[in-house]
Computed example of a mutant assay.
Amino acid sequence: MDKIRQPIPLFKKWFEEEINLTKVQIPTAVCLSTIGIDDFPNARYVSFKEIHDESFIITGPLNSRKGIEIEKNNKVSLTFWWTETERQIRVQGIATKISEELAEKYFHARDFNSKVVSMICEQGKETSTIKLLEQKVLERVTKNKKIDKPKDWGGFSIKPVRIEFMEFRKSRFHDRKLFEFKDEKWILKQLQP
C-alpha cells in the first residue's frame, strides 16, 4: 500500500496509475449510490469529472431521478473499481450542487451529441415514442448549431467523510485502509481483508 497518509493525494495517484494502464472505453465511470425516493438504495454509473476543492465532481440533469434523490437526501456514495490495478475505492460523502459557472464549464466540455441529448431528453422519464426522440436528436444534430446548457443540467460536488482504499491480492489477504474525516482531520485505520 502507498505511504501517502492523506486520501485525496492517494486517490489521485491511484487514479492516474489506472488511467495510464486501462483499456476500458470509459475509464472515468463510477457507481453512484443514493437513497431512493421510495427509501430503497439506488445505484447507477456516472462519469467522474475531477477532484475540485477536495471533493468529487459528477454531472448530469438535476431533474433526473439521481438529482431528485440527492435533493431529498444528500448522503451518497461512489464506488470505483479499477480492473488493471485491481483496486477499489469507496467514498461516502455529502453532495451539494456545483456552481452555475462550473456546470457551464463541464457542459461545454461535452461532445456535441451529448449536449443535444441533454437538451432534448428528460433523463429517466417514461416515453412512449423513443423513435420520435431519436428523430428530434438527429434533426438537431444535423443543424450543428451551438447548444446552450439546459437550466436543469448541472452537477454535484461530493465532499467525502469516509474513503476506503482496497488493493486486491491473489492471496485474498486484501489491503484495506479506511480514512474517516473527524474533528477536521483525516483518521487512518487499517481494516481486515
Rank of each mutant, 00 (worst) to 15 (best):
S55P: 01
I94S: 02
H52N: 12
F179P: 01
I58C: 06
I163M: 15
Y45V: 12
P27F: 05
I68V: 15
L21R: 13
V24W: 01
A103Y: 01
S114R: 04
E18Y: 06
S33E: 03
R162D: 13
F15R: 02
D175R: 00
F80Q: 05
T34V: 01
S64V: 13
E167R: 04
F40H: 10
I94C: 00
K66Q: 14
D39V: 09
Y106A: 04
S171N: 14
M166A: 10
P193K: 08
K49E: 05
I4K: 13
G154V: 05
K149Q: 09
I120C: 07
F112R: 05
I26C: 03
Q25A: 09
W81M: 10
K170D: 13
I8L: 15
M166S: 09
K146G: 06
V76Y: 08
T96D: 11
S157T: 07
V46S: 03
E184Y: 02
M166N: 05
K97W: 00
W153H: 04
K49G: 00
S64L: 07
T83M: 04
V76L: 10
L188N: 06
H52Y: 13
T79V: 14
R65C: 08
P7F: 03
F181W: 01
G67H: 09
I187H: 11
D39R: 07
E139D: 15
T34K: 03
E167K: 06
D111K: 11
N144E: 13
F168K: 03
D148G: 11
K170P: 03
Y106W: 08
N20F: 02
K12Y: 03
S114E: 09
K189H: 13
S128I: 10
R87A: 10
F179W: 02
I68E: 15
Q25L: 10
I26H: 08
V116M: 06
K182N: 09
N20A: 13
P150T: 06
K49S: 02
I68P: 04
D152K: 03
H174V: 04
D2Y: 08
Q92N: 09
D39A: 11
G155A: 07
N74K: 13
T85P: 06
K23L: 08
L78D: 07
E71M: 13
H52P: 04
Q92S: 07
G67S: 12
D152I: 03
K136H: 05
E104S: 11
E139Q: 12
T127K: 04
I89N: 01
C121P: 01
